[in-house]
Amino acid sequence: MQLELSVVGPVFFSPDDEETFFSWLRRIEVISQIRGQHRLLHMEFKHTPSAEEVISLLVLFRRWQLDLSALEPFRNEDNGHHILWQRSVAEAVRK
C-alpha cells in the first residue's frame, strides 16, 4: 500500500523561503517523493511515519501554515500529545 499525502502548499515570500521549506521537507527521511502541481503539494512515504517524523511534519506544517487535517491519519498516542496539534507556533511560544 502506497502512503500519500496531498495538501495545498505554502505561499513563499522569497526564493530562500521556498528553498528552506523544501530543504526541511527533504530531510524527513520517511518521505520518498515530493511533487508539486500548481499549489498542490504531494508527498509519498516509504512507510508509516514514526512519532518523531510526524512531529517533524507537524512543526513544518505549522510554521508554513499548512492544513493540519492532512496529518490526522498519522496522529496517535505516541505523537498526539504535542502542543502544535492544538496551538499555533506563536501561541505555543507564549504559553
Rank of each mutant, 00 (worst) to 15 (best):
H82Q: 03
V11I: 11
V30S: 08
R27V: 03
F21V: 02
L5T: 03
I34C: 04
P15C: 03
K46H: 14
S14D: 02
D78G: 12
S88V: 11
Q37S: 05
M43Q: 03
F61H: 01
Q2C: 05
G36Q: 15
Q86H: 14
E44K: 13
N79I: 05
L60S: 13
E53V: 10
F61C: 01
L68K: 13
N79H: 07
Q37K: 12
S23W: 00
Q2P: 08
L41G: 05
T20W: 00
V93N: 07
E19T: 12
G9S: 12
W24Y: 11
P49G: 06
A92W: 00
E77V: 15
G36W: 01
R26I: 04
I34W: 04
A90E: 14
E4L: 08
L25H: 11
T48P: 04
D16W: 09
L71I: 13
P73L: 07
I83V: 15
H42W: 11
T20E: 09
H81V: 03
Q65E: 14
L5Y: 07
N76C: 12
L66V: 08
E77L: 14
D17G: 06
V11Q: 04
T48D: 00
S32W: 08
F22A: 04
E91L: 04
E77T: 15
A92L: 02
I55Q: 09
S88H: 11
I28W: 08
V30Q: 03
R63W: 08
S14H: 01
F45A: 11
G80H: 05
F21P: 01
V59Q: 06
R94G: 01
Q37C: 05
A51E: 10
G36A: 08
A90W: 00
P49R: 08
F45E: 09
Q33M: 05
E91Q: 15
T48H: 07
Q33L: 12
L68T: 11
F74Y: 12
I28S: 07
L3C: 01
L84D: 13
E91A: 09
R26Y: 02
V30F: 02
F74L: 07
V93S: 03
S32M: 07
E53W: 10
A51P: 07
D78L: 13
L58M: 04
P49L: 06
V89H: 02
Q37F: 10
H81G: 10
G9T: 13
G36E: 14
I55G: 06
R94N: 01
I83L: 13
M1E: 14
L60P: 10
T20A: 12
S23Q: 10
Q33I: 02
Q86Y: 11
H38G: 06
E44M: 11
E44G: 09
S32P: 05
P10Q: 06
S69W: 02
Q2Y: 00
M43K: 04
F21I: 02
F45S: 09
V30W: 05
W64S: 06
I83G: 00
S56K: 13
S23I: 00
D78T: 10
E4S: 15
V93R: 15
T20Y: 04
L40W: 08
T48C: 00
H82I: 03
D16G: 04
V59A: 08
L58R: 03
I83N: 00
E4Y: 10
S50Q: 13
V7H: 05
I55C: 06
L66I: 08
E52L: 10
I31R: 04
L68F: 11
